[in-house]
Simulated scan of single mutants.
Amino acid sequence: MRILMVCLGNICRSPLAEGILKDKVKKAGLEWEVDSAGIGDWHAGELPDQRSIAIARRFGIDITDQRARQIRKEDLLDFDLILAMDDSNLRQVHLLAKQLSQTKAQVDMIMNYSEPGKNRAVPDPYYGGIDGFEKVFYMLDEATDRILERHQQSEKRIANS
């Protein structure tokens, strides 16, 4: 399984989502690849926002090995699942997908895993304080639990077929 998390600049929400899911995947002993990217390239090459780093660290997760990057067309061919943080990110990923004749990735909103069909956005905490980052962490923690559960169940069904 290859999963890509997408937000606007790839310094706040998607790095947290990547770090949280990577931590869970490692603890579960799974061989999944988890990455993140931004719609824009404004922060390409930069570390995640210091507040994302701090809140992840508070929960025992180190995201300082991540560097921001912009999503590429190839990502739609390379990843199985691309998860957007909000409607705007989702629309941009779909626009990118339309430029390709074929895509591999399933594209969805990340919160549809914890709240199916609601298309709830993960709020961008960039212009707020650490409390916003903590709220985002908890939202992504719940959603990533559901991602892990759903895809592990799917893998078991396939293995038992």
Rank of each mutant, 00 (worst) to 15 (best):
D124R: 03
I39Y: 06
I147H: 07
R13K: 07
I55A: 07
T64Y: 09
Q92P: 01
L81H: 03
I63D: 04
M85P: 12
A37D: 05
Q70I: 03
L140A: 07
I53C: 09
L77C: 05
L76N: 00
P48H: 11
S36A: 10
I147T: 03
A68F: 11
H43R: 10
A121C: 12
V34P: 01
R69I: 03
A37V: 04
G9H: 12
L4P: 12
K135M: 15
L140R: 05
C7V: 03
A121M: 12
T103R: 13
E149G: 00
H43K: 10
I53L: 13
D49T: 02
I3N: 02
K118Y: 04
L83K: 01
H43Q: 14
R146H: 14
G40E: 09
G19W: 05
S36E: 07
V93S: 09
A56Y: 01
D41W: 04
N119D: 11
K26P: 02
I53G: 08
L76K: 00
D80T: 04
S88P: 00
A105S: 15
R150T: 02
D62F: 08
D23Y: 13
T144P: 05
S14K: 14
E31R: 10
A84F: 09
Q106C: 09
A17D: 05
D35C: 08
I11G: 06
F137D: 01
K24W: 05
W32G: 00
K98Q: 15
E18W: 12
G117T: 04
E46S: 14
F59K: 10
Q66V: 00
W42R: 02
S14Y: 14
I53P: 00
Q102N: 11
I130M: 15
R51E: 02
D145Y: 10
L30Y: 08
L47W: 02
V122T: 05
C12P: 04
N10M: 05
M5G: 03
G117W: 11
R67S: 09
M109R: 02
A54N: 08
L83Q: 01
R157W: 06
L90N: 12
P116F: 09
D108I: 02
E31I: 00
I63A: 11
S114F: 09
S88Q: 13
F79K: 01
T144Y: 11
F133G: 00
E134H: 05
I71D: 08
E115V: 05
K26S: 12
Y126Q: 06
V93C: 10
Q152N: 01
L4S: 05
D41G: 15
A97E: 01
K135Q: 15
S88W: 14
G45Q: 06
M1F: 15
H94T: 02
G29A: 11
N119V: 00
L95G: 00
K26Y: 08
R58L: 13
D87H: 13
G29K: 08
P116W: 10
L30N: 03
Y113K: 03
C12H: 08
G60Q: 02
E31T: 04
D23Q: 14
R57Y: 06
M139R: 04
G129L: 06
R58W: 00
K26D: 10
M1K: 14
L30I: 04
I20D: 09
D75P: 08
